[in-house]
Amino acid sequence: TTFDQIYKDSEMWIINMETVCSDQPRVHAFHYQFIAGLGWTPAKPLPAGNIQSFADGADNGLIVVSFGSALKTIPKELMDVLMETFENLPQRFIMRFDSEHPANTPSNVMLVSWLPQNDLLGHNNTRLFITHGGNNGQLEGLFHGVPMLTLPVFGDQFYNARRAFLRGHGLFLDLKSSSARQIHGAITELLLNPKYRKSVQRCSRILLDMPEPRKALSFWVNHVLKFGGSHLKPSSMQLPLWKFFMLDVAAFLAVSAAIMSACIFMCCRCTAK
């Protein structure tokens, strides 16, 4: 079975992407449904222990740092830049880091191999989310209304970083070339300029006012189970590419234009003689 067959035979595609206030509007047929936030859940109380006490004691604000599974190991040079940046800020930082802790880890930084990201983003003291720009993490940031500083690593993360910037939900920097001064400046801008928090929290309120994602998913799944999905698909899906792009028409027009040009050229030569 080829991907092309799966694409054409599938009754419906559910896309975990938000296109109302965090991305650009997209034109699509009904067999494509953009339903973001299927994993959204309200923040739960943090588990009792070091993480809870660290977050609760962040009187100057808490900043959550996570690169997800995008970086298995963070290069020492990058960690040195991050530690230097965090040390010179009054906020507390909790960072997912599954390696040996650097010797220069500041007292305002907690490094943990796992963190309850959703619950931390919903914590009252959280002021900023430093992320690699993965789609799920970005949606969690939107859900909780937390501004984001994105340091993309690969793939769609560069696009996600730019869409967050264009929508006013945060800033982005180059992960490899950014200095401690640049990261410090971006964090300061995001914390002190209220437009970012205002923008992302407005988007959060819009998303929470939309139909509940699980109900939307349930509706479309049940609809397809009852009626199938053929009425939702455009007929163009069954066309070969040369028909879809009307290459035969383009070829006919190109040949006609060439013949007409040749005739005009010959007529002009005969007239000149």
Rank of each mutant, 00 (worst) to 15 (best):
L225V: 12
L239D: 15
E189Y: 03
C270G: 04
G228R: 11
A254I: 14
F219A: 09
P234C: 05
A272P: 00
R26A: 14
M95D: 01
T73W: 09
F265H: 12
M83A: 06
N160M: 02
N136K: 10
P116Y: 08
S99T: 10
A29Y: 07
S178C: 10
L207F: 08
A186Y: 04
H28P: 04
R269T: 07
L139K: 13
W242H: 13
K76D: 12
S178D: 05
P211G: 06
R162K: 14
R26K: 15
P234G: 07
V221D: 06
R202M: 13
R96I: 05
R269D: 03
I264A: 15
D156V: 02
G39L: 13
F30Y: 14
I15E: 05
D56E: 10
L151R: 00
L173W: 07
T188P: 04
M17E: 14
L121M: 11
F34P: 00
A161D: 03
G229H: 06
N50K: 10
R202W: 10
G168P: 01
Q117T: 08
D59M: 07
P213C: 12
L111C: 08
Q157G: 02
L151W: 00
F67E: 04
H132K: 05
V153S: 02
C268S: 09
I14F: 13
T2S: 11
G133W: 04
P47G: 07
G229T: 05
G145E: 05
L232P: 04
K198C: 09
L62W: 01
E100I: 10
L71Y: 00
G137W: 02
L82D: 04
V224E: 11
H184E: 14
K76F: 02
G61K: 05
G145H: 05
W242M: 08
S66F: 05
R269S: 10
L78F: 04
W220R: 15
N125M: 12
G155H: 05
F54R: 00
T73V: 14
N104D: 12
T105W: 01
D156I: 02
K198P: 05
K8Q: 11
M83C: 12
H123Q: 06
L239A: 08
A58H: 03
I51Q: 02
V109P: 01
L149S: 03
R181I: 14
L190K: 02
T126S: 09
P147G: 01
L151Y: 01
V20Q: 11
P25W: 06
R269G: 03
C263H: 06
H28E: 08
H169R: 06
N136E: 13
S22A: 14
R167M: 13
A55N: 03
G57Q: 15
V255H: 01
